[in-house]
Design a protein around this nucleic acid. Structure first.
Lengths: 151, 151
DNA sequence: CAAATCTCAGCGGCACTGAAATTT
DNA sequence: CAAATTTCAGTGACGCTGAGATTT
């Protein structure tokens, strides 16, 4: 009987350990929600393009904390799926101007609905007041710890 | 001026995204605290052995949510460093009885002090009451989402 | 010329799978 | 025999680095 699978008590008090434990469920619940060949950051890229308009790859990297190399692969996929386009920026031809296609826009809407449902599912064990407080605390920590971690 | 590196507003409301953003800082602050060749799960293994006594590899996997293959590599390192030993379990010779050495025990003490400091640093942007509430909420989510995810 | 942007090749840690060897 | 345990080989996503090509 009993907790043969209980983790050491020390870990249970370490927020960084709890957080890492939750990474996998967080990835899983979202992966299940998007239920397709999409990478996890596809939605983030589409959302950034929708909110801020066409952007260079470097700007997307800055906004989303994604590595420049990974952004290349990400956009290769989005482009192959017809969700985004790359065009040389006439103002600075070193840059690619990345734009959302109309197919990409509707794909984004679909993804957003599913991912929002996944968020609710993820927070479901907490009462609403704790849900709000948790999100607020996480926002504070992200704002403090995720500053200029990209190049 | 202004927020040229602001993420899309939608993401900012997604707890799973916030959580994933915090993974890297969480890993970083702990990595800096242990400041050595230790893998991130070394401390967890040592703590489990200290709290529950000698255990089989499968039991450690269950407790720590670590894959059986990764546990092999983990113990190879701990054994090479003289922090843990493997001995065939006389009661069931399929099992290895993994034990903490005295060197491992003192290594654990040193690690724990440093990692506890890292936790404080990680939570430092939050007022103490929010720190407590956050840990409590994370514990609830882990308890709910991390059930039998191992084999 | 130096600096910025994009691309590609590759590395290392990590979570995981499948299969073999041993033992119950 | 089936099932459990450990081990190894290999896969794939991910974060990252270094170097080359192009443009400013």
């Amino acid at each position: 009987m009993s907790d043969d699978d209980a983790p050491p008590a020390v870990l249970w008090e370490f927020p960084t350990w709890l957080l890492l434990q939750l990474s996998q469920p967080a990835i899983g619940v979202v992966a299940q929600a998007i239920d397709g060949p999409d990478r996890r950051s596809d939605f983030a890229v589409l959302a950034a393009l929708a909110e801020f308009g066409p952007a260079s790859q470097t700007e997307l990297c800055r906004r989303l904390h994604v590595d420049r190399s990974d952004m290349v692969a990400l956009l290769n996929h989005l482009q192959a799926d017809g969700h985004a386009t790359r065009a040389p920026d006439p103002l600075d031809r070193r840059r690619n101007s990345v734009s959302l296609t109309s197919a990409g826009r509707s794909h984004l809407r679909r993804l957003q609905k599913n991912i929002e449902a996944a968020q609710s599912e993820f927070l479901e064990p907490l009462p609403p007041s704790e849900q709000q407080a948790l999100v607020k605390s996480l926002q504070t920590l992200v704002a403090h710890h995720c500053r200029g971690t990209q190049r």
